[in-house]
């Protein structure tokens, strides 16, 4: 029979702190890159798709 180890050691606390810290930092980085991408892309007006969709600059007057 296998018994689960339940005792929480100081070592586990430090490892959890490390893993949680790295996890949160990576999550923050992903959110930041996403926000940066949205800002950078939206700054240049509507995105023009060239795959079977008409270009805004050709179809909309004044573009």
């Amino acid at each position: 029979m296998v018994m689960a180890i339940r005792a929480e050691h100081e070592l586990h606390r430090r490892r959890f702190s490390r893993n949680a810290g790295v996890g949160l930092a990576l999550l923050g980085f992903v959110v930041l890159v996403f926000a940066l991408s949205v800002v950078k892309i939206s700054r240049h007006g509507p995105v023009e798709g060239f795959d079977h969709t008409p270009r805004h600059s050709l179809t909309e007057p004044g573009q």
């Binding site: 070592l11 606390r13 430090r14 490892r15 702190s17 490390r18 949680a20 810290g21 790295v22």
Partner: peptide, 9 residues
């Protein structure tokens, strides 16, 4: 003395 996140920070 295994490091926690604060030590790396």
């Amino acid at each position: 003395g295994e490091a926690d996140f604060g030590d790396y920070f």
